[in-house]
Design a protein around this nucleic acid. Structure first.
Lengths: 254, 254
DNA sequence: TGTGCAATGTAACATACGTTATTGAAAACG
DNA sequence: CGTTTTCAATAACGTATGTTACATTGCACA
């Protein structure tokens, strides 16, 4: 449906040329697939073939132990790219599953080769995406290692909120929120029961309004304080800073 | 001192040309700096300028909350590259500090530009390094979120052991191990006291011999089982699989 | 070659969070 | 349109791990 979220996000950081837009647009409409909620897009152990761009819907990366313990290690929102250049690796070390119904575009190795050879601004934008994803993963490590249940949950909600907002998917102080308490448990390393307790506490403190599949954040600052949330790791502070490409000019001659 | 660990690691994955060797060799001898144990190389909030290659010694990435809680989010061993292309970002979202005395080579933006323009095998190797680091960070998320203290510690020790072995830094079943119990606590999200208890238990089970600054692993398989350790995420299984570059042939004409 | 400081080890006690179980309310479904 | 399944809510109870405190060892350095 919407390549808009990706472009909106990337352009926050690098100004893309008209040709860049055409390239991205073509790539994201050529090979589109649709998935139901709660199914796997990719499974651990498979050979990675294409890179997936989330066009609509929510998905997650997760890992599982033999005894069934499951950890969600990241969420994918519209506009997110699963892993630039994953096909370099021989096999997947994790699975990717949908939360809601999802449409994705499959981006081929050839697409990335073409980008690498002739579209340095997109290369820079993809490196930015890669570095931010790494930063998010580090922050999750911090979240699980050091924060209490309440802080952890507040932090996660702040992150999702800001990422949705960057993708243009919030309306006023509320947004769609399809995660179940079970999903939140798998993502925070807490039990479902304790997730419930924690959400009750956040509600009681007036930090969130969560009902059905809608989340409202009446006061983001307060929620951020509760989660000891420092947005620096999302590297969103780039308004007006329209970088030129990182690759040298001559590489752009393709 | 030793560029060897980096080259050894990368060549596990991609065959580098003689010219590639020269490039890497020059980059890693030009701008070398030395640091004492327990000092910061980079601080959160600073503008990233160069990329750091660890030539010798151990370092770590860490994040800290205002109240002092500290999480080590990764360890750097000889041959590790801190973050390919970090200078794309406006400021660091974490700090990098030494554990032991450390020497690093500073790799400039120009170096990466040159590599991107004319050395596709190194580009591939750097993407591999980047993707593996991301996989390691995900596994840490899993480790902190789902594993018990004993599993977590065993898992961490397995990872360090295998990474050291890949870098050629183990001798038989033992290796240098400069981490204090405090470091292990910060990395595993456990208290120092509980780290001590956990190490005692691993010792009692004959899974490790840890004394002074030396670690021995008498039976890696048993330690791996104790940590529910699946090495797939390190993507080391590439013997004989000498990939050609990912970038298209024409880009190699530099 | 002591002497001081950092690192390790241990005990007693506290608690945040997990587990199991049950209930009611929504969704999903045939 | 009833039936089934999933999800949320809550209670009672259990435990892995945290906290505080102090003793011991080891090592850097004067």
């Amino acid at each position: 449906m919407s390549l808009a979220s990706l472009v909106r996000k990337l352009e926050q950081f690098v100004r893309l040329s008209p040709v860049d837009h055409v390239i991205l647009n073509r790539a994201s409409t050529e090979r589109v697939r649709h998935f139901s909620p709660r199914v796997d897009i990719v499974r651990e152990g498979e050979k990675p073939k294409d890179v997936h761009l989330i066009l609509s819907g929510w998905a997650c990366r997760y890992k599982q132990l033999e005894d069934g313990r499951r950890q969600v290690v990241s969420f994918f929102l519209p506009g997110d790219i699963c892993d630039v250049n994953v096909f370099i690796l021989r096999e997947m070390d994790h699975s990717i599953g949908t939360i809601t119904a999802v449409s994705i575009a499959d981006l081929s190795r050839e697409f990335f080769d073409k980008v690498a050879a002739g579209h340095p601004r997109i290369v820079t934008a993809f490196w930015w995406e890669t570095l931010v994803n790494a930063a998010i993963q580090r922050e999750w490590t911090m979240n699980l290692g050091q924060r209490t249940a309440l802080e952890r949950m507040a932090h996660l909600l702040c992150e999702i909120w800001l990422r949705l907002r960057l993708a243009g998917l919030t309306q006023g102080d509320s947004c769609d929120f399809p995660l179940t308490q079970g999903d939140l448990a798998d993502a925070t390393g807490l039990s479902k029961v304790h997730v419930n307790r924690t959400l009750q506490e956040l509600r009681a403190d007036g930090l969130i309004v969560l009902k059905g599949k809608t989340l409202a954040v009446p006061n983001l600052d307060r929620l951020m304080r509760a989660g000891l949330f420092n947005p620096n790791y999302l590297h969103m502070d780039h308004e007006g800073r329209q970088l030129d490409a990182v690759a040298p000019p001559d590489a752009a001659a393709g």
